[in-house]
Simulated scan of single mutants.
Amino acid sequence: MPTHRDLKVWQRSHDLAARIHDVTRGNPAATAPDLVSQIRRSAQSIPANIAEGRGLRTNPQFRRHLDIALGSAAETDAHLSVCLDRDLLSAKLVLDLRDELSTIQRMLVALKGSLPQR
Rank of each mutant, 00 (worst) to 15 (best):
residue 6 D to G: 15
residue 8 K to T: 14
residue 8 K to Y: 04
residue 8 K to A: 15
residue 10 W to Y: 15
residue 10 W to R: 05
residue 10 W to A: 01
residue 11 Q to V: 06
residue 12 R to L: 14
residue 12 R to P: 03
residue 13 S to Y: 02
residue 15 D to L: 08
residue 16 L to W: 00
residue 16 L to H: 03
residue 17 A to F: 00
residue 17 A to I: 01
residue 21 H to P: 00
residue 21 H to A: 14
residue 21 H to G: 10
residue 22 D to I: 00
residue 22 D to Q: 14
residue 22 D to A: 15
residue 23 V to D: 06
residue 23 V to A: 07
residue 24 T to D: 02
residue 25 R to W: 09
residue 26 G to D: 13
residue 26 G to A: 13
residue 26 G to E: 11
residue 26 G to M: 07
residue 28 P to S: 11
residue 28 P to I: 11
residue 29 A to E: 08
residue 30 A to S: 15
residue 30 A to E: 12
residue 30 A to D: 13
residue 31 T to G: 10
residue 31 T to S: 15
residue 32 A to H: 12
residue 33 P to L: 11
residue 34 D to S: 13
residue 34 D to M: 10
residue 35 L to H: 10
residue 35 L to Q: 11
residue 35 L to Y: 09
residue 36 V to S: 11
residue 38 Q to W: 06
residue 38 Q to P: 01
residue 39 I to Q: 10
residue 39 I to M: 12
residue 39 I to G: 08
residue 39 I to K: 09
residue 40 R to M: 07
residue 41 R to S: 08
residue 42 S to T: 15
residue 42 S to D: 05
residue 42 S to Y: 00
residue 42 S to N: 08
residue 44 Q to K: 08
residue 44 Q to W: 05
residue 45 S to M: 03
residue 46 I to C: 08
residue 47 P to M: 13
residue 48 A to S: 15
residue 48 A to D: 04
residue 50 I to L: 05
residue 51 A to W: 01
residue 52 E to K: 00
residue 53 G to C: 02
residue 53 G to W: 03
residue 55 G to V: 01
residue 56 L to F: 00
residue 56 L to R: 15
residue 57 R to M: 14
residue 57 R to W: 06
residue 59 N to A: 12
residue 59 N to G: 02
residue 61 Q to L: 12
residue 61 Q to N: 09
residue 62 F to T: 02
residue 62 F to I: 04
residue 62 F to E: 09
residue 62 F to A: 00
residue 64 R to L: 09
residue 64 R to N: 11
residue 65 H to G: 03
residue 65 H to I: 05
residue 66 L to E: 03
residue 66 L to S: 06
residue 67 D to Y: 03
residue 69 A to N: 06
residue 71 G to Q: 11
residue 71 G to Y: 07
residue 71 G to I: 09
residue 71 G to C: 11
residue 72 S to D: 10
residue 73 A to E: 07
residue 75 E to K: 05
residue 75 E to C: 04
residue 75 E to H: 04
residue 76 T to S: 14
residue 76 T to C: 13
residue 76 T to V: 08
residue 76 T to H: 06
residue 76 T to N: 08
residue 78 A to W: 02
residue 80 L to S: 07
residue 80 L to C: 06
residue 81 S to I: 04
residue 82 V to R: 13
residue 82 V to I: 15
residue 83 C to S: 12
residue 84 L to A: 12
residue 86 R to I: 11
residue 86 R to D: 09
residue 86 R to E: 14
residue 88 L to I: 11
residue 88 L to N: 10
residue 89 L to F: 02
residue 90 S to R: 10
residue 95 L to T: 15
residue 97 L to K: 06
residue 97 L to S: 02
residue 97 L to N: 08
residue 98 R to Y: 01
